[in-house]
Structures are given as structure tokens and as C-alpha cells.
């Protein structure tokens, strides 16, 4: 075999480049992961021991060892339910309209810019809006409904942008062939575009909800209470009509607020409680993200094999 010194040098150089970038990447990744791991590890070390059945089923208390997060996790669940119920249909509807129906003109451009900008508005601004408009302007009070509404507003741009991106990613061939068999726009959107875009839309919606679940500022701004020793009325009842909406107008607290409240107390026991709440909140977020991945996988499998 003949020798090719110059070609060999080029190959060697390329190998060095690849290797040095890989090493750099590993170092950066290590620092990022180490930081996250420290944070989570610290939280787990402090809080894991405190998580018990009692912690989940007791109301807050003056004594750290008797305090629990019952009202906080129930509040978080109900607020998230309202948020999802408002943000997903509104956001998906708006995204579909903007992508599939709206004519391309200066008005739709303006709306597009504004939606993108809204995604960057600090959450406390939404809190102020809700305080001024929902709580005082409309006299709705500091209720679960208002909490859900403000978080829905907060994540609405995320859901809209995710929907638009998912809809835009639907191959034009699918759209053309659906129109080609004589479908009208409604049929194309609901029977072909939406099912194809669903994995992306759901991912966006759950990413939005994961953000909302940890939000503290807007909820504090509207004046959610930090010490609640009762549960909202149950949404389900034994007598007809079996469901009621009274819980919507109930005062509430959520887990991040409970956490915030406990960290500002002097006793070490409360700090432990806060860490435990943090672990649970993290767990809830992870479960939601895991669910998003699962859904995406399931739905994609149905679309392409």
C-alpha cells in the first residue's frame, strides 16, 4: 500500500478536533448536571425523611412536626385543573385559527408578534393584571377560579406557540391530499391536521402546565392565602347533580406558596417541611413531563410506523 502522508495528516487533525470538542462537551455537561444533582440531592437529603402519609393528609400547623400540605396539594391540583381546562382549548383554538384560518396580513403579523412577546412577560405582571382586573375589577375575589385563570393567561402564549409549530410541522402533502379528496377546511383541520399535530400540541400544553405548577409570583400577587386549614368544597357530591362548582370560589393555597411561607420561618423543622414540599413539587413536574413523553410516543406510533 502506498503512503499518503498529507491525507493521513488531515484525518489525524479531524480526529483531534472531534476528540477535543467531545471532551469540552463532557466537561460542560458534567458541570450542568452536577449543579442540578447537588440541588436535587440537597432537597432530597433535607426533605425526603419528612414525607409521610401524615404530611400529605394534615393541614398546616404552628408545630412543624404536625404540619402538612393537604390544603396546598389539593389547591395546586384544583388550580392546575382550571388552568388546563382554560388554557388548552383557548390556546389550541387560537393556534389553529392563526395557522389554518387567518389570512396573512398585517393584523395577523401583529397578533403573531404580540403572542410571542406575551410569552416573555414576567409572571408577576400577569399577577398584577389579575389582581386589578379579576380580583378587584370584576370582584371575583381570591379564589381558585382566579388562580387558574391567571396561570392560564400565563401559559396561553406557550400553548399557542406550541400549537402553531405543531400545525406547521404537519406535512403539506397530508393537507393537500385531504383537500384533494374534497374535504372542506373544517374537515381538513379536525380530521387530518389536528390528529397529526396532537403529539406536539400535548407536549406544549404539558410544558406550559409544568411551568404553571411552579409559579409563585402571580398567585401571591392575587393574594392567595398562606395558611389554610380547610379544604374547598368537594367537586363531587352524593346527591344530584353530583358535581358542583362551589370549589371554584373557594380561597386556596398552592404548594409553592406553602413552601415560600415555610422557608421564611425561623424554625429548622419548617425548613425541612419546605424541602419535602419541594421534593413533591419536583416529583409532580417530573410525572407530568414523563406523561408528556409517554403521550407523544403513543400518539406518534399511531401516525407513522
Amino acid at each position: 500500500m502506498a503512503d499518503h502522508p498529507s491525507e493521513k495528516r488531515i484525518v489525524a487533525k479531524a480526529k483531534v478536533q472531534d476528540l477535543s470538542f467531545s471532551i469540552l462537551g463532557i466537561i460542560v455537561l458534567f458541570f450542568a448536571m452536577a449543579m442540578l444533582a447537588t440541588l436535587i440531592g440537597d432537597l432530597l437529603a433535607d426533605g425526603l425523611g419528612r414525607i409521610s402519609k401524615q404530611f400529605l393528609t394534615d393541614f398546616p400547623s404552628r408545630r412543624p412536626s404536625e404540619a402538612g400540605i393537604l390544603s396546598a396539594w389539593v389547591g395546586t391540583t384544583l388550580v392546575m385543573f382550571v388552568t388546563a381546562l382554560l388554557a388548552i382549548p383557548l390556546g389550541v383554538g387560537a393556534g389553529l385559527y392563526l395557522e389554518e384560518y387567518a389570512p396573512r396580513n398585517w393584523l395577523s403579523d401583529l397578533i403573531e408578534i404580540n403572542v410571542s412577546n406575551l410569552a416573555g412577560v414576567p409572571s408577576i405582571i400577569y399577577g398584577l393584571l389579575a389582581l386589578g382586573f379579576f380580583v378587584y375589577g370584576l370582584g371575583m375575589g381570591q379564589t381558585i377560579l382566579v388562580g387558574g385563570m391567571v396561570l392560564a393567561l400565563l401559559i396561553l402564549p406557550i400553548v399557542i406557540v406550541a400549537t402553531r409549530e405543531a400545525v406547521r410541522a404537519v406535512p403539506s402533502g397530508l393537507r393537500e391530499s385531504a383537500y384533494g379528496i374534497g374535504c372542506n377546511r373544517w374537515q381538513v383541520v379536525w380530521q387530518y391536521v389536528l390528529p397529526s399535530a396532537r403529539p406536539g400540541i400535548l407536549t406544549g400544553a404539558i410544558v406550559g402546565l409544568s411551568r404553571a405548577i411552579g409559579e409563585t409570583a402571580p398567585i401571591i400577587t392575587i393574594g392567595a392565602l398562606t395558611f389554610i386549614a380547610f379544604l374547598p368544597p368537594s367537586p363531587i357530591q352524593a346527591s344530584p347533580p353530583f358535581v358542583n362548582a362551589d370549589w371554584l370560589t373557594s380561597p386556596f393555597t398552592v404548594m409553592p406558596i406553602q413552601m415560600f411561607n415555610w422557608t421564611s420561618r425561623p424554625q429548622a423543622g419548617f425548613h425541612e417541611n419546605a424541602a419535602a414540599t419541594g421534593v413533591l413539587l419536583l416529583g409532580m413536574t417530573l410525572i407530568m413531563n414523563g406523561f408528556a413523553i409517554y403521550l407523544r410516543y403513543r400518539l406518534r406510533r399511531g401516525l407513522r410506523s
Binding site: 402533502g173 397530508l174 391530499s177 385531504a178 384533494g180 374534497g182 397529526s196 401516525l303
Partner: peptide, 15 residues
């Protein structure tokens, strides 16, 4: 499109 049928370049069956 109800009167005329079309087949495209790339096979694009519905999912």
C-alpha cells in the same frame, strides 16, 4: 375537488 380526483407525487396515505 369533489368532481376531480388527484394522486400526488409522493404516496401520502392518511394516518
Amino acid at each position: 375537488r369533489l368532481l376531480v380526483g388527484m394522486v400526488f407525487q409522493k404516496p401520502n396515505p392518511f394516518p
